[in-house]
Simulated scan of single mutants.
Amino acid sequence: MITVEQTDELHQCTQRLEAVLSTLFEQLNTLAAEVVTVWEALDAEGRKPTSKDLAFLQATIEARLLANDNYIHGTGVVLEPGELADQELFLEWFYRPSSGKIAPMMLNFNRQSESFYNYQGMPWFTRPKLTGEASVEGPFVDLYGTELYILAFSVPIFAKGHFVGVAAADIALHEFDQLLTRCLLRMKNEAFIINGEGRIVAANSANWFVGNIASRPAAARVHKLKPLSIEWSLVELPVPR
């Protein structure tokens, strides 16, 4: 029998988790809106943007990375090929390396190179482009970027209905897991957060390991987290921790 206390625990944890996700996506939408403002202004002038037109984003990005409540490892905007007059592939992206000093992300966009970084086929870029909605991909190892186990959050950028690119953020899973687990630990029963692929993102019990595939027992209570487009769910099992 589900008690009122258990119902309240699930409801409160769901609200806290959705608040965390909402804040993160609001920050990305703000970044996207700044890009749209520039694109529309340049379009009115009859001019195509260049990479230099995105330099102003650095202040916003660095402020986010330096915030006291920050758990973002890297963030910025990644553009649709052909959007700029001077670059085919381009991203305005900064991250926090192990030294702690914010640095620009330098990637190889030479198509002839073995280490060519082709973001066009990556889900965190293609899913927002195709669906027009927010996305979370992972956890996965960022082999071409930071080599960390990360979650990639992204939102599409549309200027006058035209896809421009995505505003995105990489979050080191070990940092985000601590944030999510603090909420889950307030629940008396075993619980975990699962992504759309069925992989565990965070859990409050050693019986469940992050990154593993987990089933959803029939007796479990499942609550889909907002935004629904990210396909994350909070699963509570009828088993005390």
Results as ranks from 00 to 15, higher is better:
16 R>E: 12
100 G>L: 09
7 T>R: 14
147 E>N: 13
209 F>S: 15
102 I>V: 15
113 S>I: 01
118 N>V: 02
232 W>D: 04
63 A>F: 07
192 F>E: 02
138 G>S: 10
9 E>P: 00
139 P>D: 03
188 K>F: 11
5 E>I: 01
126 T>Q: 10
197 E>F: 11
227 P>Y: 05
151 L>K: 02
184 L>H: 05
173 L>S: 01
57 L>K: 01
14 T>D: 00
32 A>I: 03
50 T>R: 15
100 G>C: 07
229 S>D: 04
134 A>W: 08
78 V>M: 14
145 G>D: 09
83 E>T: 04
167 A>K: 02
77 V>W: 03
126 T>I: 08
204 N>I: 05
11 H>V: 01
198 G>N: 02
180 L>C: 04
65 L>K: 00
31 L>P: 00
19 A>V: 11
202 A>T: 04
36 V>I: 15
116 F>R: 03
37 T>W: 04
91 L>I: 02
217 P>G: 03
183 C>F: 12
157 I>D: 01
173 L>T: 02
230 I>A: 00
90 F>G: 01
73 H>D: 09
44 A>E: 13
89 L>R: 14
210 V>M: 09
104 P>C: 06
8 D>C: 05
121 G>T: 13
193 I>S: 06
208 W>H: 15
237 L>N: 11
204 N>H: 09
183 C>S: 15
27 Q>D: 11
41 A>S: 13
3 T>V: 06
74 G>H: 02
153 F>Y: 12
155 V>C: 04
39 W>A: 01
